[in-house]
Design a binder for these strands. Structure first.
Length: 280
DNA sequence: TGTCAGGTTTCGG
DNA sequence: CCGAAACCTGAC
């Protein structure tokens, strides 16, 4: 196991919140998976002990995944100018944004539509058990998320047996397109263009596109707006509930000091945890 | 047993 | 461009 000094990093909320559906907490250890890796992280005070599988000690991967290059304190100081965000930070400190694999994030969020976190985890578990590679870590076994080419070549009727419903055809079609997708195009430093590219895949609208941009592609000034996110904007910031998605996106872009993504994570965790009723 | 859900697509105005 | 209905399935 490798040891890393990692203070001010809320692993629990970051790994088990709505960003990723590929982590499980067993005892005091977090076990995560991607399409080709297993990851283990155990928290111990300001340190973590970690390992990667099957290639051991893959520090380059972990550093990128945990998004450790960001100047976290600096970002915090900017977004905490906002009073609501400041409260949310105090309620749930040290929340982070992960930098996950592009294919995995895209395919996972295609499955997320019309489901809550629990439902998404269920779908992904079932899909992975049918199509993913099995790995063993510490006597626990896990199924990796299926490889893109496996999903692309799967039979639609077989995919449908994983209870992902109408999302099956989107998953297969998008997997096919991803195999020929030029990820370099997504490196464009232009969220508008990137969103258009992503929406060219099936089963991806504005919200899912924004999730991919924030959780996989590193866009820092985008706030994925699910219905709860929109309720936050309407109830805490007074936005008109008839405002369109993209108008709301423009608003957050201009109002969180260039860091709408992290601000959004804090706000959503806040309302999710303390269960504020924000009924419309 | 019936309703509803952290969204996208399709269709009609 | 905008609002509304359909969509698979598990959970309450």
């Amino acid at each position: 196991m490798n040891r890393l000094y990692l203070p001010n990093y809320n692993l629990n909320a970051t790994l088990l919140g709505g960003q990723s559906f590929s982590w499980k907490l067993i005892g005091n250890t977090y076990y995560g998976t991607t399409q080709d890796k297993g990851i283990k992280i155990r928290e111990d005070g300001d340190y973590i002990f970690w390992q990667t599988y099957p290639q051991k000690d893959n520090w380059e991967f972990l550093r990128r995944y945990l998004n450790l290059e960001v100047d976290y304190e600096n970002v915090l100081s900017k977004i905490s100018e906002d009073e609501n965000v400041e409260h949310a930070i105090q309620a749930n400190p040290n929340l982070r944004i992960l930098r996950q694999d592009f294919h995995l994030t895209t395919l996972s969020f295609i499955l997320s539509s019309f489901k809550n976190i629990k439902g998404i985890r269920y779908s992904i578990d079932k899909l992975s058990q049918k199509y993913g590679e099995k790995i063993v870590v510490d006597d626990h076994f896990f199924y990796l998320f299926p490889k893109t080419e496996v999903l692309a070549t799967a039979k639609l009727e077989d995919l449908a047996e994983t209870s992902i419903g109408y999302r099956a055809k989107y998953l297969k079609s998008s997997a096919e397109k991803l195999l020929n997708f030029d990820e370099i195009l997504l490196k464009l430093d232009d969220d508008v263009q990137t969103r258009v590219q992503l929406k060219g895949l099936d089963g991806i609208g504005n919200k899912v596109a924004d999730c991919i941009m924030v959780f996989a592609l590193g866009f820092e000034n985008i706030m994925p707006l699910d219905v709860w996110g929109q309720r936050v904007l309407i109830n805490m910031y007074g936005l008109d509930k008839k405002m369109s998605y993209l108008k709301m996106q423009e608003w957050v872009k201009a109002n969180f000091q260039g860091h709408a993504a992290l601000a959004g994570q804090f706000l959503f965790e806040y309302v999710r945890k303390i269960n504020i009723q924000l009924m419309l």
